[in-house]
Nucleic acid binder design. Structure first.
Lengths: 206, 206, 206, 206
DNA sequence: TATGAATGAGATTTCATTCAT
DNA sequence: TATGAATGAAATCTCATTCAT
């Protein structure tokens, strides 16, 4: 990935790099789409290559292999989600509204036509040696959501509850959308996100 | 195989059949455990054979292949779950309590040490031609749960809601337990089942 | 196969042996039927066992394995055919009629409902080390038929010809019946045998 | 794979395709050779790969599996033979000479060093679902040969006979050459073809 | 003699990855 | 950068044969 810069102008090499980065992103997005459609384990490099409009061999010019591709996919989405939870918590809104907003963002992060990805839900598809940073992010995210729940309890917005379990229940409900959502279904992603967030938070309110 | 069946030989063949069926069940349970631990797509016949304590080739004496094994696993669990929902609906309890009972049974069907199985969550791992009966059962189950929700609304126990989406949210929350539950975790399956069922139904109450 | 004779009467043990031989013959016939139906290479021991009405394992009580079974099948039929050619040559008939009679017998040896066998046509299905006696018989048979042709030429019954090639042509024509003959077809084995023998010898006559 | 095709790249892709087709043909020929040597059922993918000088896995880059390989082999040869019979019938020659010419071509189609193939004789080696087009061609060919026989009878060139049976006898005689022909034998393919054709047609003449 | 069950070698096939150009 | 072709490891499955009873 690190390129040996030739003697041409820095601008030119920047442009090359930028083009290359764009290409890598395109490939990541293509991979994410196939992973979402078929599941990581059932997805072959050939399918990814085809979705990204290049030859199988050429994939390896941009990524070292399926694992790296998967790792970056997962990282990207988790960072998306971590940003969303940070944004929500930076808000003066109620815990309920913060939580709803996080859950809605979560659904969008998975299902949005262009950038939605679900590969991060399959951590075990990574070789054991590469899981640590993904697990760390995933757990950090879960802790942040749990924190929102606990804050709501502390603020007397939410009833007392087993925050750990309830958090997982909520995350499960939104994660599961990846399994049944169809773009041509009766409800839009936005509707789904709102309905689920409202329902789940309702179970917490006093 | 023309045999004169006297009452003794018939008994013997019954016994043999019964033993054979027992063995098949043992293997199914072993397969279900590995499927639950590692996911269907990532599970190899070798692993199943090892878990069931026989040689890989010998698996094929009992089942025609991975697909059949998977099909039976899925069918078994879905029938368990359908029985549970029928049992709950045969009860004079409130909709809320019926629903809680179904959700608890659902969690148990997946996580119980001995018989818990999650393979039915991965319908796409079956070859397309074998999916129909599984999908039918799965959808029948979902419809039954949705029916419970709608009945609760009709009886004024539950607030008005998008029953289809809310049902999927609840099922997602319980299905997702398969991903994070560890037998040596802080909470028992029974605790998890109760907490989740209570939380989820709470979101429906008026 | 060699049995340890117990102290009972010799008669009894003879009866056992005879019974055992009968059983072996039954199995050979069953094997021959399956070999004819499906070809040697495509026939499994399970199919033979089923056709012979015993368990797969039990086959090995009577025969040391598939190879022996095949060997005996081939030997049996070839000896049939050698006997037929000897019988024909012991006759005072013309060469033409002797030859016709051999060819008819050949067709019957392969297609007859009860005893017909074609396994001897697949010599290569035997392990190389076991082929010698079969090849010897097969070649002896071919030589005998060729001899008939050459005698007919010497006696001025047949036109001069390349006896080796013509013999193989005739044998090919009759061997090939095994591939297309169906018991429920329009012509009986006897009709086929006669028509083919007449046609083939016709090509030799002056 | 959206590509702007300028005249150069199109040429290149043509060249590539042509090379690929050449390779496929090479492999087909190699497979045909092994099938002829050892019989279809006894031939493994490893042997074909070795004969074609590539790794077993690489075979699957060119063909989807053994079945496809076999299908193409059979189709190729049968089309050769159908072409030969068409060519013969387009001729003003006598029925006898047309028939001889077909039989000679038949022998060549099977035994010629380079392109000879015999896989089409083993239709049952194909999975049942793939047989139809092969059987259709095979039967069409047989009908065409039978037609030649019947025409000869109608023209009073041939004696009255059971055309169906006699046709099968002739085809059996030539098909059987595949079983005994050895390239290092005493007679060339051409000699064999001529001798057999002459002999077989002789049996038809008045 | 007879059987259900077990085994191990080998077959076909898949697939991530690499190579040559 | 890009590609068609190649590879090798591993997966699923088959099957003759053997074992324990």
């Amino acid at each position: 990935m690190v390129q040996i810069l030739n003697s041409r102008s820095k601008q030119a090499s920047d442009r090359v790099l930028r083009r290359s980065e764009t290409r890598r992103l395109d490939i990541l997005r293509a991979a994410a789409r196939v992973f979402r459609r078929r599941g990581v384990a059932a997805t072959g490099m050939r399918e990814i290559a085809q979705e990204a409009d290049l030859s199988p061999g050429n994939l390896y010019y941009y990524f070292s292999g399926k694992d790296e591709l998967l790792l970056f996919c997962q990282e990207r989405t988790l960072e998306h989600m971590l940003a969303a939870v940070s944004a929500a918590r930076a808000t003066p809104a109620s815990s309920a509204e913060q939580l709803r907003s996080v859950l809605r963002a979560h659904v969008h992060a998975m299902l949005d036509e262009l950038e939605g990805a679900t590969a991060h839900l399959e951590v075990d598809a990574l070789p054991a040696g590469m899981r640590a940073p993904i697990i760390e992010k995933r757990d950090r995210y879960e802790r942040a959501v749990r924190q929102l729940v606990m804050e709501g309890v502390a603020r007397d917005e939410f009833a007392h509850c087993d925050a750990a379990l309830v958090t997982r229940a909520m995350l499960g409900a939104v994660n599961w959308t990846a399994r049944w959502y169809r773009p041509d279904g009766a409800r839009t992603v936005t509707e789904i996100a709102k309905t689920l967030a409202d329902f789940l938070v309702r179970g917490l309110l006093k």
